[in-house]
Simulated scan of single mutants.
Amino acid sequence: MRFIALICTLIAAPALASEDIPDQYPASLLYSKPVEVIPHVFSAIGATAPSTYDNAGHNNNLSFIVTGDGVVVVNSGGSYLLAKALHDEIKVVTDEPVKLVLTENGQGHAMLGNGYWAEQGVKIVAHSDAAAEFAEYGPQSLSGAQGRLKDRAEGTEVVAPTETFEDSFDASLGDIKIEARYLGPAHSPGDIVVWLPQQSLVISGDVAFHERMLPIFDHTYTADWIETWENAFEPLGATYVIPGHGHPTNMDQVRRYTLDYLVYLRGKIGEHLENGGDLSEAYYVDQTPYAHLDTYEELATKNAGRVYEQMEFE
C-alpha cells in the first residue's frame, strides 16, 4: 500500500515536475535523485522542459531495475556525463553490475549516453527502427546537445546500440521477468515499452505522457498512435506507469493526457476541415483543456498544424 500511496503523492504534486524548476538535485548532473517507485525499480525523473544547460539535458526519465543478478537500465541518458551520473547513483543503491541498457527510442536523450555504457562493456539494446533513426539523426542530436550543454556534453559521442530487435526482447534477470516490447507506431520510430508483468508495471517511454504536453513530430502519425494504444498498450492493464516524462503514475492519468488528447485534437481538426478551414487557422483550434500542461506554449500550435497536415489527406 505504501507504494500506491507514493504514486498518489506524486500525482498530487505536479509542481515538483514543473518546467520552471531548473534543477532539483544540485549535487548531481541528474535533474532529480532516483526514487524507488516499487521494490527494486527506480527512476530519476527528468525535467518536463526542453533540454537546457541547467537541467544538463536530463529532461526524460532514466530508470533502472535491480534484479538480484545485475541491473537493467532504461535509457542511456542524454550525454556521457549524464550516463555516468546515473551510474554513480546506481552504485549507491546496489553493488550489482549494470548488465544491460534498453533505449526507449532513437532520440538523443535516450541514446547519447551510449558511449559511457559501451566503455563499461554493457550491452545496449534498441528497436531496429530506433537504431536507424539514431544512425541518421544522431550527429544532429549530438551537435544540438553540444550547443546547449557546452562543457556538460564533454565526452559525448554518437555510439550505436550493440544489439537490435523487431518485436520483443527478453531482458529478464534474476527473479524479475523483463520484456522490452515494440507495440506498434507511436510517438517516434522504434518506440518501445519495458513491461514487468509480475509487478504490473510498464516503463512506457514516449508511448505515454501526462505532466507535459506530448509533441507531435513530422513522423508522428496520430491515427497509428491511437491504434497502438487501444490494441496493444492499454491491454497491458498496467497498475503502475513510469512515463517517458513526468512522475510515475497510473493508466488513467496517461490515458487522459495521451490517448484522450490525441482523440480530442483530431476531433477539433476534423471539425475545422469540415468547415473548410485552412492551415493558418488550424494552429489556433481550441486546446485550452490542456493548457495547464508543461510545454503547452511551445507545442500546442505545432501539434495542431501537424495534425491538420496529416488529416487533410486521410
Rank of each mutant, 00 (worst) to 15 (best):
Ala145Lys: 07
Gln146Ser: 13
Gln146Ile: 09
Arg148Cys: 14
Arg148Gln: 15
Arg148Thr: 09
Leu149His: 07
Leu149Phe: 04
Lys150Asn: 00
Arg152Ser: 00
Arg152Thr: 04
Ala153Cys: 15
Ala153Asn: 03
Ala153Glu: 06
Ala153Leu: 04
Ala153Asp: 09
Gly155Ser: 01
Gly155Val: 06
Thr156Asp: 11
Thr156Arg: 10
Glu157Pro: 05
Glu157Met: 12
Val158Asp: 13
Ala160Thr: 00
Ala160Phe: 05
Pro161Asp: 02
Pro161His: 02
Glu163His: 13
Glu163Thr: 09
Glu163Gly: 09
Phe165Met: 10
Phe165Pro: 06
Glu166Cys: 10
Glu166His: 08
Glu166Asp: 11
Asp167Lys: 12
Ser168Glu: 10
Ser168Met: 03
Ser168Gly: 13
Ser168Phe: 12
Phe169Ile: 12
Ala171Thr: 07
Ala171Lys: 02
Ser172Lys: 11
Ser172Glu: 05
Ser172Asp: 03
Gly174Asn: 00
Gly174Thr: 00
Asp175Ser: 13
Ile176Pro: 05
Ile176Val: 08
Lys177His: 11
Lys177Gly: 15
Ile178Glu: 03
Ala180Val: 05
Arg181Gly: 09
Arg181Trp: 13
Tyr182Ala: 12
Leu183Ile: 04
Gly184Met: 02
Gly184Ser: 01
Pro185Gly: 04
Pro185Met: 04
Pro185Ser: 08
Ser188Tyr: 13
Ser188Gly: 11
Pro189Tyr: 02
Pro189Ile: 02
Gly190Ser: 00
Asp191Phe: 15
Ile192Ala: 02
Ile192Ser: 02
Val193Trp: 09
Val194Gly: 15
Val194Met: 04
Leu196Thr: 14
Pro197Val: 07
Pro197Thr: 05
Pro197Phe: 06
Pro197Asn: 04
Gln198Phe: 09
Gln198Ile: 05
Gln198Trp: 07
Gln198Arg: 09
Gln199Cys: 03
Gln199Trp: 08
Gln199Asn: 07
Gln199Ser: 10
Gln199Asp: 14
Ser200His: 15
Ser200Tyr: 01
Leu201Trp: 10
Leu201Asp: 06
Leu201Pro: 00
Leu201Ile: 14
